[in-house]
Design a protein around this nucleic acid. Structure first.
Lengths: 201, 201
DNA sequence: GTTTATACAAACGCGGATGTATGTAAATAG
DNA sequence: CTATTTACATACATCCGCGTTTGTATAAAC
C-alpha cells in the first residue's frame, strides 16, 4: 500500500530471506510455497517476485549468507608451533559457529536435510571451492605438523587430511541431526580431541 | 486391460519399485509424480494406487529393500585374531555393496541427496536402529582389538567407534556424490586403510 | 459354470502453486 | 512542482498433481 524508501526495501529483502529460512527448515524447500514465505515475512508474493526471480534465486541468496562466517572464523595459523592444536581449534570453531549463529545452523540443516539435489540444485552435491580449500588447508597444516615433529611417524599429510575431511562431514551432519542434549552435541569436543589425538606422536 | 495372475501382479509391483527408484534418482522425491513412475514402469497410476497407498508408501517400500544387503554382508567376526583387520574389511565391504549393487547405491543416493526430511520423512534424520547397531559392533570390535593388544595405548574403544562412525558417514556421502573416476572413489580403500592404521599399535 | 474378487485402466473433480499482468501510493529525479 | 520510477499489493489465467471413482476383463473360488 505504501511505497517504501530504499532502506525499507532492503529490510523487506532481509525479512524475506529470514522468513524463507524458517519456512524452508520447517517445510523443506520443495513444499515451501512463496505464499508461505511472503506471509511469514508479513508481505505478499508480489514482494517476493519483486526482490527475487523465483524460489530458487531466493534459496541461493539465503545460502550465500551462511558461507561467509566460515571464511572469517575458520583459520589455520601457519606460525602455530603446534599445528595439531590449531587443527583441533579449527574443527571446534566450525562447531562453535553452528552453536552461536542460529541462522547459519538452520541454513546448514536445510542444505543437509531439507533440499533435493536435482536440476538447479544438482551442482550442490559436489564439493564447493570452500570445501576444497578447507581440504587443502588441512593438508598444509598436517604437513607443518609433520615438520614440527608432533605427528606420528609414517603418516601422509594428504591421507590424514582426507580422513579429517570425512570426519568433519560426518560430524556436522550428525551434529545437525541431533537434539541439543544428544551425545553428538555434548561430546562433540571430545570427539574432535580424540580424532586429533590419534595423529599425535 | 487384462487381469493378471498373482505372479504377474508381484512383477508389476517390483517394476513399480524399480521405476520409482530411477525416477526418484533423476527428479528427486518431491518432483517425482506418480504418473512419471507409472509410465516408467509401463503401467498407469491405477496400478500404483492399487499396490501402494501413495508416493510415501512406495518410497519406504523401496527404502526397505536397500537395507537388507548390509545386515547380511557387513559382519564382524568375534573370533578374529586381528579385529582391526576385521573392521577394515567391514568398511570395505560397505563400499563394495555400493559398487556391485546399483539398486542399493541408487537408493542411498536418493536418501542422501534426493529427499527432504520433513513431515513423513522427518524421522529418517535420526540414526536408524541398524546404524546404532553398527556403532555398537564397532565399539565391541575395538574393545576386542584392545584386548588382543593390536591397539595403540590410551585409546578408548567407544571414542574410536564414534570416530569411525563419523568417518563412514562422511565416506559414504562423498563416495556417492563423486563421479566414478573421482579421487573419493578410486582411493576409497586407501582412505579406509589409513583410517584403521591410525589405531594400530 | 457361475460368481466373485482381483489387477489394473480410464475418467473425474479438486485444490493449490506458479508466473504474469495490472493497479497504486509514495519516494525520488528533474 | 510535475513526471517518473519504485516497491510492493491485488487480481488473473493456467497448469499440474493428487485422490477417488468408475469401468472391465480375467483369474480364482466355489
Amino acid at each position: 500500500m505504501v511505497r517504501k524508501t530504499k532502506e525499507d526495501a532492503e529490510i523487506t529483502r532481509r525479512h524475506l530471506i529470514d522468513a524463507a529460512r524458517r519456512v524452508f527448515l520447517e517445510c523443506g524447500v520443495s513444499r515451501t510455497t512463496l505464499e508461505k514465505i511472503a506471509s511469514a515475512a508479513g508481505v505478499t508474493r508480489g514482494a517476493v517476485y519483486w526482490h527475487f526471480k523465483n524460489k530458487t534465486e531466493l534459496f541461493f541468496a539465503m545460502r550465500e549468507q551462511a558461507i561467509l562466517p566460515f571464511v572469517d572464523r575458520v583459520i589455520f595459523d601457519e606460525a602455530d608451533e603446534d599445528p595439531l592444536a590449531g587443527i583441533e581449534a579449527a574443527l571446534g570453531e566450525i562447531i562453535q559457529i553452528l552453536v552461536d549463529q542460529p541462522a547459519t545452523r538452520d541454513t546448514f540443516e536445510i542444505i543437509s536435510f531439507k533440499c533435493e539435489y536435482v536440476d538447479e540444485f544438482a551442482a550442490m552435491m559436489q564439493c564447493t571451492a570452500g570445501q576444497m580449500d578447507f581440504l587443502r588447508q588441512l593438508t598444509e597444516a598436517y604437513t607443518r605438523a609433520g615438520q614440527r615433529g608432533v605427528l606420528r611417524a609414517g603418516l601422509l599429510p594428504e591421507a590424514l587430511a582426507y580422513d579429517t575431511f570425512l570426519f568433519v562431514g560426518g560430524l556436522i551432519k550428525n551434529w545437525l541431526a541431533s537434539a541439543p542434549d544428544a551425545h553428538f552435541r555434548v561430546a562433540v569436543d571430545a570427539m574432535i580431541h580424540t580424532h586429533v589425538a590419534l595423529r599425535r606422536a
